[in-house]
Amino acid sequence: MIFKLIKTFFAVAAIFAIALYYQEVWPFWPVLVIAVLYMLLILVLSTNVQFNFFVKAYNRNPDFPDNSVALSFDDGPVEGTLEILEILDRYDTKAAFFCIGRNIQEYPEIFKEIIKRGHIVGNHTYSHTRKIGFLPSTVIVKEIEKCNKIAKEIGGVEMNLFRPPFGIINPKTQRAVKKTGHQVIGWNVRPYDAVTKSPEKIIHRITKDLNRGDLILLHDNMPNTAPILEQLLVILEQRKFSTVRPDKLFNIHAYN
């Protein structure tokens, strides 16, 4: 409803500006400004899942009773996921892994190992295409359903949680998850570990303002994730933070 109002407002403003332009009251630049502002607004709203604008996403829970944070990993499973699992075991930590369907097919035993060790898995589409923001809702539905189908066949789980690739949520994604019935999981601590090579910067971004109920995003397909994770878990212990699995943080069901 709010999105429709925004579109209507900008449409009326653009029509008004164009009318004044043709009447030689205004120059053409206000029309361009309105169009640019609209595109910028949609870009911001679509690339920030934590805004909860198009769909309700679970990003953080500051009311969680314990001084806990949650860990999540995107873009696996990959060979490096096994080392991450070993580290999590050593620190008795459970996490969520949002898996790409084609990676599940490539590393089925690692996918099953994630589940076996008590972690939860979530849907991260089949292909994780960079074109996700431009796909029609019917194609997004197929991406989600294909990933779920593979997870069911290999791991015996019917995933209920969905994390959109790159955190992109727009009206097309909104329609897709409404059809598939998935609950959207975002994050509120993003260290940009997929683009930053410095482990020190990544650790700093995570820990500089960490609070109860935060949900941390990492990627298990990055080469530095394992040592970063181990260092992070030591810091969490030092700061008296416990860890909790994301589904328990939000009191939701990971599987149907």
Rank of each mutant, 00 (worst) to 15 (best):
I216F: 02
Q23I: 07
I150V: 15
A176L: 06
R190Q: 05
A226W: 02
I6K: 04
F3T: 01
T129S: 05
I252H: 01
S127H: 14
I104A: 07
V31E: 11
N256E: 13
S46H: 01
F162I: 06
E237T: 08
R245E: 10
N188T: 14
K149D: 15
T129L: 11
G156W: 07
K116I: 06
K240L: 03
A151S: 08
K56Q: 13
R212F: 15
T129R: 04
N224G: 03
L236I: 01
N52L: 04
F134Y: 02
K179H: 11
R190N: 14
L161H: 12
C99L: 11
L85T: 01
R117D: 02
I140E: 13
Y107L: 15
A13L: 11
W187S: 04
N52F: 13
N251S: 15
Y58L: 12
S137H: 08
V141K: 03
Y38M: 04
R175S: 07
I84W: 01
I110V: 15
P246G: 06
T8E: 05
K146C: 04
Y22F: 15
T180E: 04
P246M: 05
D247Y: 01
T81D: 05
Y107V: 13
Q174Y: 06
D66F: 05
L40M: 13
H182L: 09
P191V: 05
A13M: 13
A57R: 03
L43R: 09
K178V: 06
P77E: 00
I87S: 00
A254P: 08
K248C: 09
L40G: 15
T138N: 11
S137M: 00
P136H: 00
E153V: 13
P223A: 00
K152G: 14
V244S: 08
W29N: 14
D92A: 13
P191L: 10
K131I: 01
K142H: 02
Q231P: 00
T173D: 06
L233F: 05
K240Q: 10
K4D: 15
N211Y: 10
L217N: 09
H128N: 15
E143L: 04
A226C: 01
H204Q: 01
Y107D: 09
A194I: 00
D63Y: 02
V195M: 08
P246S: 05
F134C: 07
V121K: 01
G118W: 10
D193A: 03
S46D: 02
T207N: 12
Y126H: 07
A226G: 03
I110L: 05
E83R: 07
F250N: 11
I115T: 08
Y91G: 00
Y192W: 14
E200P: 03
K178L: 05
P191K: 06
D89F: 10
A194S: 07
D75K: 00
E237R: 15
